[in-house]
Simulated assay, not measured.
Amino acid sequence: MAWLVALAASLGALFIGEVMGQSPCVLCWYQRAFMFPLAIVLAVGAFRSDSGTWRYGLPLAVIGGGIALYHSLLYAGVVAEALEPCSQGPSCTDAAMTIFGSLPLPFLSFAAFAAITLLLFLTTRITKP
């Protein structure tokens, strides 16, 4: 299940960037740097039925989730503008950071990382003796 979430999030990010033509901001690039490897690592683990894949996937999901949480807080206006890392290129808080006109991309990214983290955490509980 975690692999399917990572795959859907990776394909969604590629669709938004390549098909819809929306350039990713700096924080989106950082999130992609953690989501894309997750899709590969979790796919290999799923196809090999490796119960220890969570050891590799969980750190990627937690760090990526932290970046997505920061981006979500920045988008929501909770984090001060002075801490905004997007000084060049697309804005991290632009109104164009939505899909279907109302779903903020930072929130969707955080939800994907949170779901992957939860699913991998549940895997650790199942695989421990």
Rank of each mutant, 00 (worst) to 15 (best):
P85H: 03
L103F: 11
I99S: 09
A68P: 02
L27M: 15
Y56T: 03
G12E: 05
S23V: 04
I40P: 02
I63W: 10
T117K: 03
V44P: 07
A9M: 13
T124E: 01
A33R: 12
S10C: 04
P104N: 05
L120A: 07
P129Y: 08
T98S: 07
L27F: 10
L14P: 00
P106T: 02
A76P: 05
A114P: 00
A112V: 09
A43L: 15
S49R: 15
S23I: 04
G101I: 06
R48L: 14
T53D: 05
I16G: 00
A82F: 13
F15K: 05
A43F: 15
P85E: 04
A76D: 07
Q31L: 10
K128F: 10
A82Y: 12
S102Y: 08
L58N: 06
I16M: 08
I16V: 14
S51A: 13
A9D: 10
G77A: 08
A95E: 13
L27H: 05
L105M: 15
V26R: 13
A112G: 06
R55D: 02
F100D: 00
G45R: 08
E18M: 12
G57Y: 07
F100S: 06
R55G: 06
Y70R: 06
L14Y: 08
F36T: 06
A39G: 08
I67V: 15
V79T: 11
S72M: 12
V78N: 03
Y30V: 12
S51N: 06
S91M: 01
R55S: 03
Q31Y: 00
A68C: 01
F113G: 00
V41I: 14
Q88L: 13
S87E: 14
L83S: 06
T124V: 01
S10T: 14
V41C: 04
A76L: 15
H71E: 15
G89C: 12
S91C: 00
F34K: 05
P37V: 08
F100T: 05
F34Y: 14
